[in-house]
Amino acid sequence: MTAYLIATLTLVAITAITGLALNLQWGMGGLVNFGLFGFYMLGAYICGLLTVQGVPPLASLVGAMCSVALLSALVSLITVRLSEDYLAIVTLGFAECLRLFISYEEWLTRGTLGIAGIERPFQGLVPAQLADTALLAFTLIAVALVYGALQALAFSPFGRLVRATREDPAVVEALGKSVLTVRFKVFAVGGAILGLAGSLHAFYYTYIDPTQFSPIITAYAFMAVVIGGRGSNRGVLISTFTLILVLEGSRFLVDWVPHLGSSELAAIRLILVGAGLVLLLIIKPDGFGKEPRSAEAEIRSFTST
């Protein structure tokens, strides 16, 4: 039972990090990243591959964060001349292609066999029976750090610029700031956070293969942001540690519900996620959390600087 709880909490904490990343990109910036799972997957693979090559886990993690940040920012550049609507399909396309690449380039990724034996950070320092607890602690620290960083960012001038870009890109352009630069930076920071989340995923499972990564990761992140309230980091944390916890926890119901197989249960859970997303957008468009300041106040304060 405790093992279940620790496992679920770790997964939920990782989801919280992806939710925070998406909250920066979509919640604050209005940039739809349907390919979130691709960047997450990339983080997991870079981190996993580096550790099995003998790079220390923490160094691998930093490596994964930096490279995902770079790639993510480059992908956002494809839409340099376009509205953010196209970002959705470009990121999704990138993620799907990445999944194909990882599945087939066996010389690099071992394809569908996956990468096993990924070393966790501080593995030598922690007794084996406490390994999962230690990783949970490590993950929660990561959540706290990301939250702190994003809160600081949200209240900084750059945070105001990001929100202003979401509300009215034309005004931002008129004030002499480049919307593209904002988009580029938001994707870089978001990419770094997703790289972190992916690395934690690799550390948690210690084994990764392409089937672990699907658009469902993206859906969970969107769910977290929609419930939490777009733009509210605290809302995202609260929503992941309540609703997503319940959803994730239902994974273990399979042992107690006799007639449902795990695949039926997974399908039901995802039907709820999909339908819930639509329902929430309709009935509770602002979510249950609150953005630090109203959007109009944002534009005004930005205009006055």
């Binding site: 739809v32 609507d85 859906a219 399908a267 996620v273 999909g274 339908a275 957008l281």
Partner: peptide, 22 residues
């Protein structure tokens, strides 16, 4: 906004696909 509809359509996509799986 069109962006909200995009996200909603993704929700519809996931719900439908899993309805089929179910």
């Amino acid at each position: 906004s069109g962006v909200t509809l995009l996200v909603a359509s993704m929700g519809v996509a996931i719900a439908l696909e899993n309805l089929v799986r179910l």
